[in-house]
Each structure stands twice: as C-alpha cells, then as structure tokens.
Amino acid sequence: MKFLCLPGGYCSAKCNEAFAGFDLTGAPAVGPGPFCDSLTSNGEARFFFTQGTTPVYPPPEYEGFFGPPPNFTFAEPDGPSKFNMRDFPKRDTPEATMKDALELAGQPTFSNIRLVVDRLIGILDSDEDIAGVIGYSEGAEMAASLILEEQRRHKESGREPRLKCAVLMCGWPPMDPVTGQVVLADEHFGEEIINIPTCHVIGAADPFLDASMALYNLCDPDSAELFDHGGGHVIPRTKKTVDDLTGVVRDMILSVG
C-alpha cells in the first residue's frame, strides 16, 4: 500500500522523510530505521511525502528542533492567537479539554482548510496508488480532515473515497472542511464520524494526549486501534516499539485488502 505522509506543524516533507527513516533523497536510512523503514522491510509499503504551504518560523528556543528551514504549516488561523501550548488544559473528558483549549485560543477558525484539503485531494487523484494516509500531530489533524472531506464528497457528488485506512500519530481532532471549525465527538451525538480503519499512535506522557483521544473518539470503535508507545508527543523510534507498531499497521492494511 502507498501512503500519503503528512508532517507535523513547523516541519517539512524533507524533515518528515528523514525522521521517518529515509534520507533526504528518499533512500532507506542506514541501520535499524524507525517506523517507515520498518514498514517497508517486506517491500509492500511505499510513501508520498508532502508538507504544508504556509511558511512559519520557529521561536529561537526551538531553532533546529523541527528540522532545517524552510518550515511550513498546513492550517493557518484566520486571526491572531495568544494561546501558549504550554498552557494546554486538562479536563474530565478529551472533548472538555479541547473546548477549553479552543476558548483560551479565542475560538479560532481556519478558512484555509478548504484549500488544504483541495490540494490533498488533488494529490490523491493524481496518484491512483495512494490508498492510505499517515499523519503526525498537525499532519494527523489534516489527515482526519481529508478523510472527512472524502466522505463529504462521496455523499454530495458520488466521488469514491480513495483512503482505506489511516495511521494517526499524536493527532488532533479534525477541522470541518466547510466551516473551518474543529470537530468534536460530543457535538455529533456520539456518532462515528471517521468510518475507515484507523491506528491511533499515542503516548501516555504526551501533554496533548486529550487531543489524540478527542480524535480517537471521532472514529468507529470497531475499527479504531490504540497503540500507546508510552512516551511524549513523538514518533516512536525504539526498535521493539516500532516493530510492534509495524505489526499492528500491517494487520490493518490486510483488513482493508
């Protein structure tokens, strides 16, 4: 299966390739590689790496953390936000946490999400081999938004969805591609929103764990798998953890044919 790969905010496609286990030319990294390297070891997985188009500039204290410039993001808020991610709240439910976080951020909307999903749909339409999506952090948020857009287009125009499954790492709940607002499960009366098989890679020590769980709660519980690597807001890289995750993802791939 070929996967569309979406990096986190402030990252780039090249950074995504390198971190996933490839060098900047796309060749497999030397030595025991992390997740994508492991997934390709049987020759059955391929990847298409892309990135956001909005340039961003990491704060000086994070220089180099997100990889070499230029750095990009997918989502662009319609107005300024003074919310500091270090102040991310913790409430009784993931949805309550997200609502408080959005309130602290001034209830942002992201009208450019329409352009983002249009571009990603264009990538799917131009490469008939892509049948899955892998996203990390903001990339997982965009992946979920893309899935919603495919479902919307199927309902409204009959376009057949291309994505059969998703790997969502340290994700955030999606944005509605029409309204630009964040989608939460308790606003949809408990109905599953994302109806394809999903693997949610979470970290028990992730300060944004509630965001990942808010995304998980939007998915069909019969086909949504949780994989806890026990760490923070990171992609797992230790060999045993990566091999275990690879097994889970391969099972998911087999389940969708």
Rank of each mutant, 00 (worst) to 15 (best):
K2D: 08
F3K: 00
C5S: 14
L6A: 05
L6S: 04
P7C: 12
P7S: 11
G8I: 04
C11S: 14
C11T: 12
S12H: 05
A13M: 02
K14A: 14
K14N: 08
C15T: 15
N16C: 12
N16A: 13
A18V: 15
L24H: 14
L24A: 14
G26Y: 13
P28I: 09
A29C: 15
V30G: 13
G33S: 15
G33H: 07
C36L: 14
D37H: 15
T40L: 10
S41I: 01
N42C: 01
N42A: 03
F49Y: 15
F49R: 09
G52R: 00
T53E: 11
T53W: 10
P55A: 05
V56G: 10
Y57Q: 14
Y62I: 01
E63A: 13
G64C: 11
F65M: 13
G67N: 11
P69K: 06
F74L: 10
F74K: 07
E76S: 13
D78W: 08
P80Q: 12
P80G: 11
K82L: 08
F83L: 02
F83C: 05
N84E: 10
R86Y: 06
R91A: 15
R91F: 07
D92V: 08
P94A: 02
A96Y: 00
M98C: 10
A101T: 01
A105E: 04
P108K: 00
P108F: 02
T109E: 07
T109N: 06
T109P: 03
S111C: 05
N112V: 05
I113D: 06
V116R: 03
L120H: 09
L120G: 07
G122N: 09
L124S: 10
D125G: 06
D125T: 07
E128A: 14
D129E: 15
I134H: 13
G135R: 02
A140I: 01
E141I: 11
A143Y: 01
A143V: 06
A144E: 03
L146F: 09
L148P: 01
S157E: 10
R159L: 10
P161H: 13
K164W: 00
C165P: 00
A166R: 02
A166L: 06
V167C: 00
L168W: 03
M169Y: 05
C170A: 15
W172E: 02
W172P: 00
P174V: 03
D176T: 09
P177G: 10
T179M: 07
G180I: 06
A185Q: 07
D186T: 08
F189A: 15
F189L: 12
E192V: 14
I193L: 15
I193Y: 05
I194D: 00
C199T: 02
I202H: 00
A204M: 09
A205C: 10
A205F: 08
F208V: 01
L209M: 11
A211C: 12
S212T: 02
L215E: 08
L218I: 12
L218G: 11
L218H: 11
C219D: 05
P221S: 12
S223D: 07
D228F: 01
D228W: 01
H229R: 09
G230Q: 06
G231W: 03
V234P: 00
V234S: 12
I235E: 07
P236H: 07
P236K: 08
K239W: 05
K240F: 07
T241A: 11
T241S: 12
L245K: 04
D251F: 05
V256W: 04
